[in-house]
């Protein structure tokens, strides 16, 4: 058994923390986990990507081999599009937060951000399934952009056949956060779950 999950986004979106939570939940559940993280200079507003691999203890590297992602969770649309050719394949599932974070060269007007509808279309046509959600708005409603990663985690673990459940994540949260932070993050998980349920009902 192996499940290759890519989490991609922009520095500051909580990508690394999300992968860490998943990893800890996985290990707690008795799975073997290997997570490769790319950060460094890219911490500062650049692309950040985690490769999370749940498996049965075989020899695996920290980089998912070319076009071998089972699930790609995009915290940002452009970053999701960016990894499509290298990691995606026709039966990859995409869970994408549709709120863009504009690169500086787009802000400056040097280059254009591709139209969101276009990104959505390309992802839809070249995947098994696309869940295109508005996690950022939900996060801002909850109290700020910092809950986005938890909302997306809640959505992720609510996908069919995902090896972890929302309860597994909650268990890790209970030893990671305290007080208001804990209750906010628990709510964020539920919001994520509802995003997936609503999405499935709509489509």
């Amino acid at each position: 058994m192996i499940l290759n999950l890519v989490i991609t986004g922009v520095g500051g979106q909580g990508n690394v923390l999300a992968s860490q939570i998943l990893g800890r939940a996985g290990v707690k559940k008795g799975l073997s986990v290997t997570i490769g993280e790319t950060f460094g200079l890219s911490q500062r507003g650049g692309p950040v990507m985690s490769h999370v691999r749940f498996h049965d203890g075989r020899v695996v590297g920290p980089i998912i081999p070319p076009n071998m992602a089972d699930i790609i969770m995009g915290l940002e649309p452009l970053e999701t599009l960016r990894v499509l050719p290298e990691l995606g394949r026709p039966d990859t599932l995409y869970l994408v937060n549709k709120r863009p974070i504009y690169p500086l060269n787009v802000i400056a007007g040097d280059v254009a951000y591709p139209p969101l509808e276009g990104i959505k279309e390309i992802l839809q046509e070249n995947s098994r399934k696309l869940l295109w959600v508005d996690g950022t708005t939900k996060s801002m409603e909850l109290g700020g952009a910092i809950f986005l990663n938890t909302i997306m985690l809640g959505a992720l673990v609510s996908l069919d056949n995902f090896p972890l459940t929302i309860e597994d994540i909650e268990e890790i949260f209970r030893v990671t956060f305290k007080g208001e932070r804990l209750s906010q993050n628990l709510s964020a998980l539920q919001i994520g779950r509802e995003l997936v349920l609503e999405y499935d009902q709509e489509s």
Binding site: R44, G45, L78, P85, P90, P103, N105, Y113
Partner: peptide, 25 residues
């Protein structure tokens, strides 16, 4: 595996994915 898929998507996205420039926070 998926070499054709890779090539096709790479062509499809050519010039459409702007790089994310490094920046101060």
């Amino acid at each position: 595996a998926y070499g054709e898929f890779r090539n096709r998507i790479q062509k499809l996205l050519e010039g459409k994915v702007p790089p994310r420039e490094f920046g101060f926070c």
